[in-house]
């Protein structure tokens, strides 16, 4: 990992077989409550021949994190390695991050009185939160902190076809390019480049 590495997810659409292993692994590893699914598998262009492909999506840890921009209590922070995390003690559950996010990543437990929204929960790239690393509080609030132990996030580790890649974005695109080249010509690619949420000018 270089000095200016930014960690990213990328799901190889040629390899994803829609097995849902990543989202099950995520929910199990972090002991997520009901209604919370930090990661899910979606199928694009369903039913259209040669266009159909599946992707595993969660928080994309965008470089321009729109959630961080709109948060009224500034509970988001971006680590030096690009992981977008948030502080659940600050969060007021207003859901503005959900409105800003193009991917529907922020999740809300509807468990308060009269169905009010609880504090937000989202993919942490298995890097926990602002609490002391690997403390009981961190585990309770944010789930496992695998990054601190030098492990790959659980979704990517469990991916049976190694479709879900995680790591330094430059390295990931190298791996992806290599895979496309080894397939030879004819491989259709639609790199979707979701490292920036709102790149284009309005």
């Amino acid at each position: 990992m270089g000095e200016f590495a930014r960690l990213n997810f990328y799901c190889d659409e040629h390899r994803c077989i829609n097995c849902d292993g990543c989202s099950v692994a995520c929910a199990e590893a972090h002991e997520l409550p009901e209604y919370i699914s930090r990661r899910k598998v979606i199928t694009m262009n369903e039913g259209i021949e040669n266009m159909e492909y599946s992707l595993s999506i969660a928080c994309m840890h965008c470089t321009d994190a729109p959630c961080q921009q709109v948060c009224p209590v500034d509970c988001f922070y971006i680590r030096a390695d690009g992981i977008v995390l948030h502080d659940k003690d600050k969060c007021i559950g207003c859901a503005y991050c959900l409105y800003a996010c193009p991917f529907g990543a922020p999740q809300f437990p509807l468990d308060g009185a009269f169905g009010t929204k609880g504090v937000m929960d989202k993919c942490t790239m298995c890097a926990g939160g602002p609490e002391e690393t690997n403390s009981h509080e961190e585990r309770e609030l944010y789930g496992q902190n695998r990054i601190s132990e030098g492990k790959v996030p659980v979704c990517a580790a469990m991916c049976s076809t190694k479709a879900l890649l995680v790591g330094d974005s430059a390295k990931i695109s190298d791996i992806y390019r290599e895979r496309i080249l080894s397939k030879g010509h004819g491989a259709k690619t639609q790199p979707y480049g979701w490292d920036v949420a709102y790149g284009k000018k309005l």
Partner: peptide
Amino acid sequence: LLSNILEYDKEGSLHMGHYFTV
């Protein structure tokens, strides 16, 4: 969620996510 992701930042969509953020 699917149609929202497919639409996002594309021409012809409402761009509401972007407008909201800005």
